[in-house]
Computed example of a mutant assay.
Amino acid sequence: MKFVLLESRGGNYMVAIQNIAWLRTGENGQTNVGMVGGSPLLVTGSIEEVAAKVMEG
Rank of each mutant, 00 (worst) to 15 (best):
V36C: 09
L41Y: 03
M55D: 14
G10N: 15
S8W: 01
S46Y: 08
L23T: 00
W22N: 14
Q30G: 09
N32P: 01
V36S: 10
G26A: 13
K2R: 14
I17T: 11
L42W: 02
V50Q: 00
K2M: 12
G10R: 15
M55F: 11
T25I: 04
K53M: 12
G37C: 11
Q18V: 02
T31K: 06
T44Q: 05
N12M: 10
N12P: 09
G45M: 07
N28M: 14
K53N: 07
G11N: 05
G11Y: 08
G11Q: 09
K53S: 09
L6N: 00
G29S: 06
T25E: 14
G38F: 10
G45L: 04
G26C: 06
E49R: 00
N12L: 09
R24H: 12
N28K: 13
S8E: 10
L41F: 04
M1P: 14
E48I: 04
V54D: 03
S46H: 06
G10Y: 14
R24L: 13
E27K: 02
S8A: 11
I20N: 04
L6R: 03
T44I: 08
V33N: 06
E48N: 03
G11L: 09
N28G: 13
A51H: 11
G37L: 05
G11M: 09
G10S: 15
G34R: 04
T25P: 10
A16T: 04
L42H: 04
V43T: 00
N32Q: 14
S39W: 08
A52L: 11
S39G: 13
N12R: 08
K2S: 13
Q18H: 12
T31H: 06
L42F: 01
E48F: 07
M14S: 13
G26P: 00
Q30Y: 09
M1G: 15
G34K: 07
G34Y: 04
K53V: 07
V54I: 15
G29T: 06
W22F: 14
